[in-house]
Each structure stands twice: as structure tokens, then as C-alpha cells.
Design a binder for these strands. Structure first.
Lengths: 119, 119
DNA sequence: CAACTCGTACGATAGACATCGTAGTACGGG
DNA sequence: CCCGTACTACGATGTCTATCGTACGAGTTG
């Protein structure tokens, strides 16, 4: 299935180059509750998750929109793998540009979730 | 008589209680370039600065707006001192709620400023 | 090929936000 | 007591954003 090629998908998605990632855009991307939740799950998983894995309380159109915001801000990397689109955190790039930032935000999110009664 | 009250000012500004500060609101407040710049200057100073100390490329109305966003997000504390309004970072509260977050953001901002040619 | 799944594109809409200008309020000093 | 300084309040405006619905495109599989 799909031979052994690296998912020779022809559909490519535009990602900002590492040097183009702006702190303000990253913070803005993370300031939305749904997007922050997505990032938390991606971080917890550590690997790649398909868009459909997330059960967000919005329509698919809106989900697409949020994933694009995350991708264009440089927070996640998206690649097509067959019919699914896989999402992964750009940990390497973010840690290189802003050391400790992602971990602090994730820790803060976890802390707040615990404080407010995580469910 | 406010006896030994600190600057017995009668004008009080509404601040969120420590437990009401939301991570998303903080991130959103910091995602604006002007507000991030203000926070950086406040952090660098360490103390309190008046609104008029900042030379932002916007009108005073807009400046007022940005300071209110920062205050309502719980990032800064504002108090009237005579005719001036002094602004200070809520380091204690932020560090307690989200340890390391503020420092990471400040470090990231400094890093990006250096990378993009700070002037 | 046809059907199905996954996700996109586009258009619409309501709300939020950054910005301004003008008019007004609070304080302190001459 | 009047004026200047510092900041606010309000209204207007253009832009951005989150959301939806419907129609479509790309892959996989029967």
C-alpha cells in the first residue's frame, strides 16, 4: 500500500521557514482555547495525529481554519498521508527559536486545567 | 482618612483577582507587538512606569486601550498616582500561576528582537 | 468506475479588535 | 480659581477572526 515511498503525496502545504516564525504569531495562535487544546494533545502524543483524531466542538470547516492558523504561525507541521492530514508539533524549530517557551506554555496550560477542574 | 494609605487616590481600577487570570487572555495580551513591547520595558525597568513614559506610535486613545487590555488580562497592575497612572508587571501573580512563562516569553522576545535587528 | 472518507475552498455573517478624533474628568500648581 | 497635564469615555470605522453551510477535490477501496 502506497509502496514504500515517503507518501509521495503531491499536495504540499505552505509552511513558514524557521526564520520566518514570529513570536507574536505563535502567541496569538496559542491564545485560542481550541488551538491550545490541540497543541496540548499533540505535545502529549509526541507524534503525528490526524485532523479527524480531534473531537472539537466545531464544524469541520472551522477545524480546518484553526489548523491552518497553527500551521501558518509555525506551531505545527502538516503533511498529507493518503486521505488523512497528519499534524505534528514543530518542537525542534520552536525550541531553537524560543528555548523553553513551548514547555512553559504547556506547563501553564496543564496547571490551569488542573486548577480549573480538568475534565 | 486613609491614614498611611499609599497615595490615597480615590480612583480605583478593576483588576482580575489572581485566581481569575486566564492563560489564553495573557497570551492574547502578549500577542500584540505594541503590548509586548510595553511588557518588555516594564520587565526591564522592574518598577512602575507612567503611561506617558512610553512613546508608542499610536494616539493616546489607542495607548489607553492597550494598557487596559494588559490590565484586564492580569498582566499589569495600574494605579493612579496623582495625575499620572503608574504601570507595573504582575510578576508575583504570573510567576505563581504560570511559573517560568513570563521569563520564557521575555527571553523569546529579546531573542527575536536581536535576531531581527533590534534598534 | 462508484462510493466513501477526509479535508478544502468559498461565501456569508456576526462579533471582536486596533485605530482614530473629540470631548470630558481628575489632579496639581501657579 | 483657573489652567495645564494626564488620562478616559464615547462613537466611528475598517479590518480581522471564529463560525457555519454547501459544494468540491484528492485518495482508498469495493
Amino acid at each position: 500500500m502506497t509502496t514504500a515511498a515517503p507518501t509521495g503525496s503531491s499536495r504540499d502545504l505552505p509552511h513558514p521557514h524557521r526564520g520566518e516564525i514570529r513570536l507574536e504569531a505563535v502567541l496569538h495562535a496559542l491564545s485560542d482555547p481550541l488551538r491550545l487544546q490541540v497543541v496540548r494533545e499533540l505535545a502529549a502524543d509526541g507524534g503525528e495525529l490526524s485532523c479527524s483524531h480531534f473531537d472539537l466542538p466545531v464544524t469541520k470547516s472551522t477545524t480546518t481554519h484553526h489548523f491552518r492558523v497553527l500551521r501558518e504561525a509555525g506551531v505545527i507541521r502538516q503533511i498529507y498521508r493518503g486521505t488523512a492530514k497528519m499534524n505534528g508539533l514543530r518542537r525542534d524549530d520552536l525550541d531553537d527559536l524560543f528555548p523553553g517557551l513551548l514547555d512553559s506554555v504547556l506547563a501553564a496550560a496543564a496547571r490551569q486545567a488542573a486548577r480549573l477542574g480538568n475534565r
